[in-house]
Design a protein around this nucleic acid. Sequence first.
RNA 1: GCCCCCAUCGUCCAGCGGCCUAGGACGCCGCCCUUUCAAGGCGGAAACGGGGAUUCGAAUUCCCCUGGGGGCACCA
Length: 480
Amino acid sequence: MRVRFAPSPTGFLHVGATRTALFNWLAARHSGGVFILRSDDTDQERGSDEFYADILDGLNWLGLQWDEGIEVGGPYEPYRQSERLERYSEVAARLAADEKAYRCFCTAAELDERRKAAQAEGRPPGYDGRCRTLEPSEVAGRLEANEPAVLRLAVPRPGTTTFQDVVREEVSFDHEHVEDFVLLRSDGSPTYHLASTVDDVDFEITHVVRGEDLLSSTPKHILITEAMGAAPPAYAHVSLLLGPDGRKLSKRHGDTALHSYRNGGFLPEAVLNYLGLLGWSFGDDESIFSTAEMVERFELDDIQKNPAVFDNDKLLWMNGVYIRELELDDFIARTRPLVEADLGREFTVEDLETYRLVAPLIQERMKVLTEAPDQVRFLFVSDVAYDDAAWKKVLAKPEARVSLEGALSRLSDLGEWVSESIEGALREMLAELGLNASKGLQPVRVAITGSRISPPLFESLAALGKEESLRRLRDVFGRL
RNA sequence: GCCCCCAUCGUCCAGCGGCCUAGGACGCCGCCCUUUCAAGGCGGAAACGGGGAUUCGAAUUCCCCUGGGGGCACCA
């Protein structure tokens, strides 16, 4: 099995395209085949190096290693269409010579007008084929006179193209609805249909796994392949990813670029797992599974036919699951840079010790890694930012003074500053003052962390250290 | 307008003629745990779009309707 992912560097790597890449990769790995990465960069206008790099970065981040293709090379290089232009011209010339393609001199304006007229009359809007019957001598003459011309495929008429799609089974198109489409533009450059198809033939692709948006272009690709005298590959058209509104997922739905998930604190394993669940399932009612397990079970023909809505909440949940599964050291290694960036400084040895104490606590309560700074900031800054609402709802209450005073006296006398002893001291305080845990402890939490929401209190105090904890309690008490 | 594809809880999947009074996951609701927030545990509400046909029997097969999606470029 030889499959390919052939993005066009005209935009950032999109999650929908990423899922297509994943399915290609899975199919290759499952079958022991070859996964090829090709760059469909015939569009000089919109393509850019930035997009190209973004695509490579994204695939690398996810670990979707390709065996052959751009950057890594291979027996069929080059794998960038912009470097294969001669080959497309060669194929086009050959098709023209074999009379499987012909020159068309119709101008864009003429075509547009006829298309509109056809549509208005309810006829298929495609090219009407009028240049197909031009005399060879006339064609030669107009070419000689440098009249602009495109090359079109002479689609067999009447006719039908039928193929067995791996996910959709039999699909059929009457050629009445397949126009004599353009192979070569008037400047001699190849269209997507030509370039992509020639590459699939040349690279000996066995299975074309791509988005459903290309389903209706497939007869064109099969026709080109046959005109080249080659056998078409198997096609597997994967349904599209939809936004919450049920429309094709696009920029308008917000973060659709893969890199925004990476930057947003998502783990590659979680993204892979989630994407794998969109249109495919592990079976056994399991929704959490490793990439290796996916490879073991993946089959192209198990892919779901209907489009899937991308559910951010479920991805978020899943990412939380993966975060909790991280080894502590790994978790620290991934979140430390985020915290340091937030603080605007690197961790000191003491900072790292402090962070090691709270890391396991925050690890349990995060959905994305980028939440880390907010959760631990109070430990590393000297001027805590007090949340207005928290101050009003907790510290402004009469019992706050009582509880802070009690905590202050109990904690000042504490010898060993660890969470167990701190808890013991504060519980004694609660009993003595007759306060319940909520009333008695929340003021301490707010005084220490600045917020009503924080990691567990006793551990937080332990991590903060005795001196600084007492300083904050005293400071807040003084301000009441 | 024309062509193609699709159709199970709000969402993602399971189901491939009887095991279905339709199962799991996210989300939602309730309870428990609990110093907050999470996490975790337990429970709950929630779907086979409609109509025909085949069959002893249809979520599962066929047809029509409806609905949704995609495509109709000298873009990819």
